[in-house]
Every structure is written in C-alpha cells, then in structure tokens.
Design a protein around this nucleic acid. Structure first.
Length: 519
RNA sequence: CGCGGGGUGGAGCAGCCCGGUAGCUCGCAAGGCUCAUAACCUUGAGGUCACAGGUUCAAAUCCUGUCCCCGCAACCA
C-alpha cells in the first residue's frame, strides 16, 4: 500500500544577516512536524531554504562593500549550518538564486501573464531617498517649510516608475470564497479572520516588478525589470517540487503542499498573494498556512539595540540541541507568542527531562540491570494499576495525532508528559525496590510495565528530541525498524527476555557552569 | 474612533465560545520514600479571576463602559 504523502515547508529565510532564534524556532517546529508525520507513516517532503533577492540584500551588501551574491553565499552557509546543527531533517534546501528557481519563477510569471493578470503601468508614490521607501499619501505630512515629509521625518518626493502589476483586485471574491470553503486554510483561526477582513476591505493591484535595480529574477521578455521579491520568494514552494514541470512525478506527488509554516508577520503574503498567484497560474493552492508566534527574550522583543539578541548556536551549545528543541516546542503554545529566559529553559530541562523522564528511566533500568542481570523480565498477570498506566500509555498516540491535526505541538508534548508524571506516580506507588525482597516476580512485572511505558513515550518524543529519544530506545533494545508509530498501543509490547544494554543517563541535569546548582 | 492579543494565588499559563464547588506547571512549607540524575511520591499555604455597572436563582465565564500592558500597521521568524 502506497504511503500518503505530506509536503511541509518553512518560510524561506531572508539572509541579510545571521540566523536568529526566530529562524531556529520555525525550522525546529517544522522539523518536528515532518518527523512526526514520517513516523506516522507518511511519505514526507520537508523543504526549507533562503530568499536571497530584493532590495534589502542589496542595501546590506552595499553597506559591507561586497556583491549581493557574496553576501548571500556567506549568510546562507550560516543558515544551512544552523539547520544541520539543530538536527533538522529537511529533504531539500532551496536558494532563490538557483537556476531552477529562475526557470520556475519565470514560468509562473508567464502563466499569470497568459491569464491576463499582468499589465504594465506606472508605480507612483511618495518616495524618500533617505529611507529608500515609498509611503502612502496619508503617511506623509507637510513640514513647516512646505516640504512633504515621510513618517520618519525625511523629505519625500513624488516619483513614478514603470512597473508591472498583478491584478490582485480580481481575486477578492475568489479568496473570500477560499477562506469560506476552507476555514482551516489559515491557522490559528484568528489569523484567518485578520486576513479575511483585510481582503474584504478591498484589494489593490500589486506592483510586481522593479526597474531600479537588477538583483532579482528578470521579467520574461522585459529584462530591464526584475520581479518583486515576494513573487519570486513564494514561488520557491513549487520550484522545489519540480515546477514548471507539472507532469513530473515529483510535482504530481507533492503539490499542493499540505502545510506552509510561517511567522505571523508574513501571513498576508501567504494567505492572500500566494493563493492569488497560484489561481492565476492555474495551479492548486496549498492546503494550509500555519502562522506561529514570535519569541521574546524575557518578554522583550529581540533587538540589536536592546542587546538581547540570542544566537541559536550558543543556545544549542549551552543547553544541548534536544533540550533547546524541547523547550521551545513544549513551553510555547504553537501559534502564540512565547517568551524565553535562561531560568525557564533550565527549569524545563531539569524538571521535565532530567527529573521526570530521565530519572524514571534511570531508576527503573538500573533495577533491571541489577536485579535481573539486564534481562527484561517477563511480566506476570497485570494488576489494575498496571492496566491503568498501560492504558494511558496506549492512549497517547491518539491524543498526539489529534493535536497534530492542528499542529498543536505543545499539546502533543503535554499529552506525553502527563503520562510520564503518571508513570512516576505508578512507580512510587508500586515501590519495586521493596518488592525486590518480598515478591521478585511482581517486581519484574512493575519494571516491565514501566519499561513499556517509557518505550511508548520515547517513540512519541522522537520528533521533538531525535537523538535523546533514540538513546532511550537504545537502552530498551528497541530495534531501529520498530520505532515508528505503528508500534504504539497495545499491539506491539516490548519483548520480554530482551537483553538490555547497561543503563546510562540520557538527560543530564543542567548545572550552572560556575558550579552553583540551578533550580 | 486604525488592527490584533492580553490583564486569573510569588512567576508563567489553562478555563471564557456551550454561565453553576477556580485548574495546571514552576516556586514555597511540611511529611513520606531511599530504587534513582539531591531525583520521586503525598499533603498544605497562597487568588475580592484589572476596574465599574448590567443581565441572571447563579458570572472568571454573557452585555455595556473604563483603565492598563504588548504586538502589528503592507522590507522583518
């Protein structure tokens, strides 16, 4: 039976600087989704990449005195290194400066043009040379000396530039219809409401080319124009699956995408422009846009001037990759803004990972090693308590799938850790260390049940903490081909009699480098 | 009257749509256990649910108004 497919993407990052925590968060979350779906039997294609055109790249490059291509190459290397460091399982990494992407962008442009949605006109507006930005009339005001000023107080002048336009205005009804027909097109729901009210407010045609610079994809047939960066950026999602070869196996298999994971700041581009472009080009629209929140350092927005920008590499170094991934995906309700701090990260690492899960594994497996020579004991008849905790473990996968239907990553982890907490209560209540003297057979049963619960927890933790969950499964001697979600539930228990390797701590407590104990 | 989110025990949050003993995590206190990564388990203290009106037998939950905080406002995860 062929696996169902699942195509998931991050937004492509804009590499005019080094990657920051927000980029890291998006790719980690998307990776967790991709891994979850793979383990759940889907044929997943997971794409991330970089959006390298546009005026801002040009400005940054000019400031540094290097060609934009060089700036892109340098920063892209950092983004790719980050993705790798964070243990992300992307199947492809797209750069919008690649030849395949030029071909794809030009092809979608030609389709939109052929459909009559692109026309040449003049883009005009109040332009501030100093800000290098256009402003709407109502954003400007007249200064004391009669000079018109932009919102930042710089002088603006009226300029007109030849530009191609996309007939976005023609898509208002079709977009509203899409939002009505597919109410989950944008999640969380509030975001769709915002978008829908924006669209109802009326859409203006969109300027989609520039003539003032050449760092971009040339417009087919009119090479003095380059495409507006968002036209080319959004197109990356189809480039990576083989567009313009719509007959290719890849394209037929994976398009339309199941999920675009993006930041809430670019919802409009993805939920308005992108489907409009695709409709115009006669291509199916993606199934869902998921807008995640922003991360704040101690509740404050990160900014270079405040000096609270945190580099993802140093976080990974300081806490560990899996710990870093776990913290953000558990602590921040996916879709909402979140806040992080050293104390919060340490608290999560020590409480959830070291104390609750790590220590449970350690204390139970150590007992298997000592009392049973490392052989997983065969269980006797299950007591009511045994059955109760096993039933809770068996129920996890359904809860996890249910949460994943709406990308509620934190709910998946909540469901799993609720079972970890219950398993600790079970373990304390059954007191297998006391049974060692009174009823070794019963002790074996308790240890078996505990190991089985840990097995299921570890399998479900894999998308979030691939390495650590893998180590946990190693300790239970679970073979590599028995770690997918099909092995969850009552049907496939741990085999009794398995020889387990010597137990080793998987989740160390975080201890402050200066030697003080944290938490 | 630009748009959106939010104000719930010390901290961070859930509950609010579908009114009816206020729940979770961390922290704190006491006790238990001693297998384990000074971890685990139990119990407890602590809240006028921003404020003011209103609807109702009954409001954190519905309605009206006020105050405050935070984002966004078409380059920005």
């Amino acid at each position: 039976m062929a696996k169902p497919r699942y195509y998931v993407t991050t937004a492509i990052a804009y590499p005019n600087g080094a990657p920051h925590i927000g980029h890291a968060y998006e790719v980690i979350a998307t990776d967790a989704i991709a891994r979850f779906m793979r383990l759940d039997g889907y044929d997943v294609f997971f794409l991330t990449g970089t959006d390298e055109h546009g005026i801002k790249m040009l400005q940054t490059a000019a400031k540094e005195g290097v060609p934009p291509r060089e700036l892109a190459d340098r920063n892209v290397a950092l983004f790719q290194k980050m993705v790798k460091r964070l243990n992300c399982s992307n199947d492809d990494y797209i750069r919008t400066t690649e030849p395949r992407h030029y071909a794809s962008s030009q092809a979608i442009w030609e389709r939109m043009a052929k459909n009559g949605d692109i026309y040449l006109s003049k883009y005009s507006g109040w332009y501030s040379v100093r800000d290098e930005a256009y402003y709407a009339e109502d954003e400007t005001k007249l200064g004391d000396n009669g000079q018109r000023l932009g919102p930042l107080g710089t002088p603006v002048e009226w300029v007109e530039e030849e530009s191609y336009f996309f007939k976005l205005s023609a898509y208002q009804d079709k977009l509203i219809d899409l939002y009505t027909r597919v109410p989950d097109f944008v999640l969380p729901r509030e975001r769709l409401n915002e978008v829908a009210s924006f669209v109802r407010g009326g859409l203006k045609d969109l300027s989609v080319s520039r003539t003032t610079f050449t760092w971009g994809v040339p417009v087919p047939g009119d090479p003095k124009h380059v495409m507006y960066v968002w036209v080319d950026a959004l197109t990356n999602y189809i480039t990576a699956v083989g567009f313009p070869d719509t007959a290719s196996a890849q394209f037929k298999r994976y398009w339309p995408a199941d999920l675009h994971v993006i930041g809430k700041d670019i919802v409009r581009f993805h939920a308005v422009y992108w489907p409009a472009f695709l409709m115009s080009a006669g291509i199916e629209v993606p199934h869902r846009i998921y807008s995640h929140g922003f991360l704040f350092n101690r509740g404050e927005k990160m900014s270079k001037s405040v000096g609270n920008v945190v580099d993802p590499f140093s976080l990974a170094d300081a806490y560990g990759v899996d710990q870093f991934r776990y913290f953000f995906l558990r602590e921040v309700p996916f879709g909402q803004d979140g806040s992080y701090s050293h104390e919060a990260i340490v608290a999560r690492i020590n409480a959830d990972l070291a104390n609750d899960l790590g220590n449970l594994a350690q204390r139970s497996l150590t007992m298997v090693a000592r009392a049973f020579g490392g052989t997983l004991p065969a269980p006797g008849e299950f007591s009511a308590n045994d059955q109760a905790i096993l039933a809770q473990a068996d129920a996890m996968v359904a809860k996890a799938r249910d949460a994943m239907k709406t990308q509620a990553l934190h709910q998946v982890l909540n469901a799993v850790w609720a079972v970890v907490a219950e398993a600790n209560r079970y373990f304390a209540g059954e007191a297998p260390w006391a049974l060692a003297k009174t009823d070794p057979k019963r002790q074996g049963t308790v240890l078996y049940v505990t190991a089985e619960v840990i097995r299921q927890v570890a399998i479900l933790a894999q998308p979030f903490m691939p390495d650590s969950a893998g180590k946990l499964l190693d300790l239970l001697a679970v073979p590599a081909d028995a770690r997918d979600f099909a092995r969850l539930g009552p049907a496939r228990r741990l085999p009794a009699g398995a020889q387990l390797p010597p137990p080793a701590p998987v989740f160390p407590r975080y201890v402050e480098p200066n030697g003080d104990k944290a938490n």
